[in-house]
């Protein structure tokens, strides 16, 4: 039988290393993905993901299963990411803003600050679509970005995301709306062909509960 996160964490609390190993296996990938999209630096994201696990490990004896484990985990991750971005902004003044950095996937990433500059034509060809979308996600205000990542990629429910971000569910829905609205505007050249393919009415369902 698959043990739940809470059962595993209670195991960790009792000193069971194998339980920690299982939690690591379960959340290593989603945490790294989330942090990667949050800070857009593979090495830093990995460092932060390790920090999350380290904090979970350090807090094991005080652990109480009062909230969902993922809420706790992603709350730590979000706070670490926001702090790291804040620290990064202080340092960024010393780094040339145009200095190209190598992404882990081999693509060239620039340390561009979100400036709303119009996307150049050549970026719109297929092989650059991903880069354009990545940049648009990164250009979102940090809280909106975290909300989108937790909603779209981690598929956490509204209540959980709201707890992670420390806001109400209705505030979260507005936050998500504004984030997707910004992405819609920014990515309009990529989205438009998709939209024209869609049928009229727009009443088809998205993901099911």
């Amino acid at each position: 039988m698959v043990r739940s996160d809470v059962q595993l964490m209670l195991g960790v609390k009792q000193g069971d290393e194998a339980s920690f190993e299982l939690l690591l296996q379960r959340y290593r990938r989603p945490l790294c993905h989330f942090l990667n999209r949050m800070v857009r630096d593979a090495a830093q994201a990995e460092d932060l993901a390790q920090e999350v696990f380290l904090r979970v490990y350090r807090a094991r004896r005080e652990y109480e299963p009062s909230a969902k484990f993922t809420t706790w985990l992603f709350r730590i991750a979000t706070n670490l990411a926001l702090n790291s971005l804040r620290d990064g902004r202080h340092r960024q003044a010393e780094v040339s803003l145009d200095a190209p950095a190598e992404g882990q996937d081999g693509s060239e990433m620039t340390l561009d600050v979100p400036d709303g500059a119009p996307m150049v034509e050549q970026e719109l060809v297929e092989r650059d679509r991903v880069a354009v979308v990545r940049r648009a996600i990164f250009a979102l205000p940090e809280k909106q970005r975290a909300a989108v990542l937790l909603h779209k990629y981690q598929e956490l429910d509204y209540d959980e995301i709201a707890r992670i971000l420390g806001c109400s569910v209705s505030a979260l829905k507005s936050l998500l709306f504004r984030a997707y609205e910004a992405l819609r505007v920014e990515l309009a050249p990529l989205v438009a062909p998709e939209a024209s393919k869609g049928g009229p009415g727009g009443t088809t369902e998205g993901k099911q509960p």
């Binding site: 790294c32 993905h33 992404g103 996937d105 991903v130 979308v133 438009a192 998709e194 998205g206």
Partner: peptide, 19 residues
């Protein structure tokens, strides 16, 4: 609504590097 769906589909195309 259609464009939001388009954005969501686009987001799904973006991979993240593995640990």
């Amino acid at each position: 609504v259609e464009e939001f769906r388009g954005v969501w589909k686009l987001l799904e195309e973006v991979p993240a590097p593995e640990p």
